[in-house]
């Protein structure tokens, strides 16, 4: 009951912030339309809609980290979290209350990205539903990054780390904007040591129906999601006892 009350507050705070809507939904769609327009004029296989959509969907999820991190950091910077820490809410209530409302938001964001892609020529198939499922670990990963950042940083720092650095890392190191083979070497090795390109490759494999290629990439994403979520929970609990 308490958890649901608190989760409902998180959801309202996120939905009612117009910047969240503008960046979370608007920006990825603009990029999708822009790269599709480039593809229409100068055909590049990387920007074919079935290749492009999973990458844009993962890129869009990076804004989820920004939203959640900013909300938590703002709560910490005011006395609001102090008031809640003195209430009967437990650490589990806080962590789930901050994270659970983000999961449907992340999935909705992905669905809207796919719907926009239909208008740009993406063919509907059941594989798209599989792709949605495959995106869940990536959504949890980005939610965990937001929880971690919000627990450790100020809201301005969250803006810099999640709003600028993470979104750019998600773009450059995911193989969405350019083929990582074009750079190769250390850059490609670093990209494949991080979860972003794996999240995109898993979703691409799902969209293409290459089922055997999904799990090898998904393990990377799930591994990072679990580790970062554990770190985020530890950081939040530590802050809860020290703020």
């Amino acid at each position: 009951m308490r958890l649901m009350v608190f989760a409902s507050r998180t959801q309202k705070e996120l939905i009612r912030d117009p910047l969240n809507m503008a960046f979370g939904l608007g920006f990825p769609l603009v990029v999708l339309f822009l790269l599709s327009a480039i593809q229409a004029n100068i055909p590049v296989s990387l920007f074919e809609i079935s290749q492009l959509t999973p990458g844009i969907a993962v890129f869009g999820l990076s804004f989820i980290s920004l939203f959640s991190g900013t909300l938590i950091a703002k709560d910490r910077s005011t006395s609001y979290l102090l008031r809640l820490f003195a209430s009967p809410l437990t650490s589990t209530d806080f962590i789930l209350g901050y994270t659970l409302p983000l999961l449907p938001m992340a999935l909705l964001q992905t669905v809207i990205c796919f719907i926009a892609a239909f208008f740009l020529g993406l063919a509907f198939s059941l594989n798209l539903l599989l792709a949605l499922v495959v995106m869940i670990p990536a959504a949890i990963l980005y939610i965990a990054i937001g929880l971690l950042a919000g627990s450790l940083l100020t809201d301005k720092q969250v803006g810099g780390i999640c709003g600028a650095l993470l979104t750019n890392l998600s773009a450059w190191l995911s193989g969405t904007w350019f083929d990582l083979n074009l750079v190769g070497g250390g850059f490609k090795a670093v990209a494949y040591a991080l979860p972003f390109v794996h999240a995109v490759d898993a979703a691409k494999a799902a969209v293409a129906g290459n089922y055997a290629d999904i799990l090898p990439h998904l393990w990377w994403v799930m591994g990072y999601a679990v580790v970062i979520m554990v770190l985020a929970i530890l950081a939040f609990k530590k802050k809860m006892n020290s703020d």
Partner: peptide, 17 residues
């Protein structure tokens, strides 16, 4: 915690609610 409540020094409200 069930028996107490706190009004912190700074105003503590949920901004968008």
């Amino acid at each position: 915690k069930e028996k107490i409540n706190v009004s912190p020094q700074e105003t503590a409200v949920a901004r968008n609610l």
